[in-house]
Write a protein that binds this DNA or RNA. Structure first.
Lengths: 141, 141
DNA sequence: AGTCTATCGTTCGCCTCCCTAACGTTAGAT
DNA sequence: ATCTAACGTTAGGGAGGCGAACGATAGACT
């Protein structure tokens, strides 16, 4: 299992790197798209990205104008992070890339088997996230 | 899948850390036990551990007398790495720890489902390792 | 008012795994 | 004798993940 995981991880990383992104970028964008404007703390809790890493991630996304960081007038501790149209376009690109990667990864399995696999993995995962502070890494999970 | 993988990875890492070891230590010991005395280069190729990392790994294992590094008289470029009795004991400990971890990880599944899961993962993995320089990370793979 | 606590963003540092580049030493082939 | 290739080693970096601390702010409580 560890080995298949590494294979998957390598494929995903390479796939994202080919579009000039990393896992954190995708996770942040995906959650932002899902949640709408959010504070960094909230985004961090949802996405499971550590707050200290989120700072750099948001910086990088903001540098590419994929995201906007504005202070919250109602709570001056907070920054409000908003995904931009360019950010949404990038997100679509990343999603397409990841679909490709997934197809490549699961090429050996029939659709039925893929369903079986994801079902089993879900069960394993749920059993552990139940006993823990439950935080799916991705919105559509 | 990435998420379950991370869960697995976390459990494995934590489990090994609880015994004061890391993944590299286990992989090196497991392969050494399987192969008998070997050169670092060979061990690296088998275990998939990068040569540069293997240096530190062997150093650490040697510091704990789990492994012995002796120059090869027949080829003065080579070091011959040998697992010691203490190393074998440590390896057994790590294996036991990993068995515990695996049980914990797959607790949600019945034995049949576990078999199904490993079968599916094997298929996925084989499909990719066929097209590549095929190097199972662990001996019993 | 003042104080106490919790949150937010940020910075710094550490860990694991993976990988690249370079360098000196040694073997082996030509 | 020279040229190539392998071996071990060192130094460094990227990616994901985590903990500790700190200033600024908010909220609650007295």
């Amino acid at each position: 299992m560890t080995q298949t995981a590494q294979q998957a991880h390598r494929l995903v990383s390479d796939g994202l790197a080919a579009v000039g992104a990393r896992g954190y970028h995708y996770r942040a964008l995906a959650w932002l798209d899902e949640l709408g404007p959010t504070s960094q703390a909230d985004l961090g809790r949802r996405s499971g990205i550590h707050l200290s890493d989120l700072v750099a991630t948001i910086n990088e996304l903001a540098d590419q104008q994929l995201v906007e960081r504005t202070p919250d007038p109602a709570d001056r501790r907070r920054n409000i992070i908003t995904i931009t149209p360019a950010g949404r376009r990038q997100l679509r690109r990343l999603e397409k890339q990841l679909t490709r990667v997934q197809d490549e990864l699961l090429a050996a399995l029939t659709p039925d088997e893929r369903d079986q696999l994801t079902l089993l993995l879900r069960r394993v995962l749920d059993h552990h996230t139940d006993a823990r502070p439950s935080t799916p890494l991705l919105p559509n999970a």
